[in-house]
């Protein structure tokens, strides 16, 4: 009986893990594509996500379809795993007429209401109080869903981090805080950001704080699943300190050689994708052939979609001035007349 259950769980686990790996690979492939396109002048700007794939996919694996994500500007792996079409991301990066926000936001600021991904702002951590409000709305409506909010280690120094954490704890909200602790806030190392381990901050708010190996998608999934289950069961919020590494620069405008030596090289033992591959092989869920097939498919998908999206024309200039209010004000109408 027990063996039977184990076998069944293995049967459902295998495709789940393969899908997770495929999302990581797709994200990594897209990441590199965008960075190289940026260097060629085909893209204006980008914040790479390389190194944070496992942690994000691990969280995403633990979410249900109707759960909400109040993320930040480095959450491409999570979006792809959740099923956000790759075009949504590329079109946003391009700021073309097919972009949800009509090219209004600089690259890396995504929106996908269909997949419950809140639109991303630049100011760090200001999504956290919003996430508390969203979680309150779910609780008020007695929905069995949760909110996950993501942020970097730099965010833990902000007033909004404190506000969001405290409110979530006081109102016992179905909210999981995921600190994507990649070790760097642009040039400042996490040791200089805060002298305590980030997971310990949770105790100041009376909520559990857990450390997770964010480089291992299975470990991350297990930690996220426990926290999300608690939130869903009405036990309140958890802070997850997801230890990972920002393998790329902060953005395409940043030169990390000024402040650090790269210590996680792509393809090395510490690379979350390499760790993932080893896990899948050790579990007997995949072999080299399958992994290679996934990698090749990702390259093909990214190249095709990227090229197709690049052909989409820029937005109509009028759209730059719409959606400020539901209806355009007379002031803006007048100003637009002067501009266009």
């Amino acid at each position: 009986m027990e063996q039977q259950q184990k076998k069944e769980s293995k049967q459902s686990e295998k495709p789940q893990y393969i899908r997770a790996y495929a999302a990581m690979v797709l994200s990594r492939t897209l990441d590199k594509k965008i960075v190289s396109a940026q260097r060629q002048g085909r893209v204006g700007f980008y914040t790479p996500t390389m190194g944070q794939e496992a942690l994000q996919v691990g969280v995403s694996m633990a979410l249900e379809k109707e759960d909400l994500v109040y993320g930040y500007y480095r959450d491409v792996p999570m979006m792809l795993h959740r099923g956000v079409p790759i075009e949504t991301i590329i079109n946003q990066i391009m700021g073309n007429s097919a972009d949800t926000a009509k090219g209004r936001q600089m690259p890396s600021h995504y929106t996908s209401k269909a997949l419950h991904f809140m639109s991303v702002q630049s100011p760090v951590a200001s999504n956290l109080p919003l996430a508390a409000g969203a979680a309150y709305a779910l609780k008020y409506r007695q929905k069995k869903n949760v909110v996950v909010t993501t942020f970097g280690d730099g965010a833990t120094s902000t007033p909004d981090f404190h506000a969001g954490m405290n409110l979530a704890a006081v109102f016992k909200l179905p909210l999981v805080f995921v600190c994507e602790n990649n070790g760097w806030a642009i040039s400042l190392p996490v040791e200089r950001q805060t002298p305590v381990e980030i997971s310990l901050k949770a105790s100041a708010y009376g909520m559990p704080g857990v450390k997770a190996d964010g480089m291992n998608f299975v470990e991350m999934y297990k930690v996220a699943r426990a926290a999300i289950q608690d939130a869903r069961a009405g036990k309140g919020p958890t802070l997850i300190d997801a230890l990972s590494y920002r393998m790329g620069p902060h953005s395409t405008s940043d030169d990390p050689t000024k402040y650090r030596k790269d210590d996680v090289k792509e393809g090395s033992e510490k690379d979350p994708l390499v760790i993932g591959e080893k896990l899948l092989i050790s579990m007997d869920y995949a072999d080299d052939k399958l992994l290679e097939k996934i990698r090749n498919e990702a390259v093909k998908t990214v190249d095709e979609r990227f090229d197709a999206c690049e052909k989409i024309p820029p937005p109509d200039p009028i759209t730059a001035f719409q959606d400020v209010y539901k209806n355009m004000t007379w002031m803006l109408e007048e100003e637009v007349k002067d501009i266009l």
Binding site: L68, Y70, M118, S126, L128, P129, L130, A131, A132, G133, A134, A135, Y136, A137, L138, Y140, P159, D160, H162, A163, G164, N166, L167, V170, F171
Partner: peptide, 25 residues
């Protein structure tokens, strides 16, 4: 549930209200 005495945190009061509004309240 509908009249919330909040902690003393203006950034949190406003931010939380925005999250509520975004989710349909």
């Amino acid at each position: 549930e509908r009249v919330l005495d909040t902690p003393l945190v203006e950034v949190g009061i406003v931010g939380m209200a925005i999250g509520m509004a975004v989710q349909g309240l």
